[in-house]
């Protein structure tokens, strides 16, 4: 696997505090949740706030918290610092796999932005599970707001820029019957 040493170092930070029943990885506290929870949070927030506002809320908080957690883990990391921006993003995508966000590939990459695709984006996978199990319907708009935030954060970290330096839009989503989810990231 590419970026083995970074991934292994990240996995080495995974710790379970049995006294508190709390988990941490990369120096930040984390928790497991299932697709049922996260898709219902998504659905309920969109239902109450509306698609645009609900999506923005989830995207922005995913970007902020992912940026903070990646910055913390990679602070002072000479191996990461030695990589070119594309290599840094590729390494981060391997960490996203560890976190079970789904596999994401780079379709194009440049200083001004990138295009990513995923046949396994986590929230899309969860939505489609609900479609199969509970009769949920295909969506009218993309679902992977959190992945947009994660990818915008990855780009900012890769280029050493602050939160908000990139904007992310999901242009195609499996929850809308597309073959894969596609994310376009541009410099803000």
């Amino acid at each position: 696997m590419a970026y083995d040493s970074i991934v292994n170092r990240y996995l080495g930070t995974l710790g379970f505090d049995a006294d508190r029943s709390r988990l941490a990885i990369g120096g930040v506290e984390v928790a497991f949740h299932c697709d049922k929870f996260n898709t219902r949070i998504l659905k309920n927030i969109e239902d109450v706030m509306g698609y645009e506002d609900g999506g923005r809320l989830l995207r922005e908080w995913a970007e902020k918290t992912t940026h903070e957690s990646l910055a913390k883990f990679f602070k002072g990391d000479s191996e990461f610092a030695a990589l070119a921006p594309r290599g840094r993003v590729e390494a981060i995508l391997e960490l996203f796999k560890v976190l079970a966000y789904g596999a994401v590939s780079i379709k194009s990459f440049g200083d001004g932005g990138a295009v990513f695709s995923s046949p396994y984006s986590y929230l899309a996978e969860g939505w489609l599970e609900n479609k199969k199990a509970w009769g949920w319907t295909l969506r009218q708009g993309p679902a992977c707001h959190d992945m947009c935030g994660h990818l915008a954060a990855a780009m900012s970290i890769a280029f050493g820029k602050p939160i908000g330096a990139f904007t992310a839009v999901e242009t195609s989503c499996r929850t809308m019957d597309a073959p894969e989810c596609v994310f376009e990231i541009k410099g803000a």
């Binding site: 928790a31 949070i41 908080w61 957690s69 079970a100």
Partner: peptide, 15 residues
């Protein structure tokens, strides 16, 4: 089920 690992900050602050 399908699980994912999110930061607690994300889970709380979105709510």
């Amino acid at each position: 089920v399908i699980l994912a690992i999110n930061t607690v900050d994300y889970l709380i602050e979105r709510e």
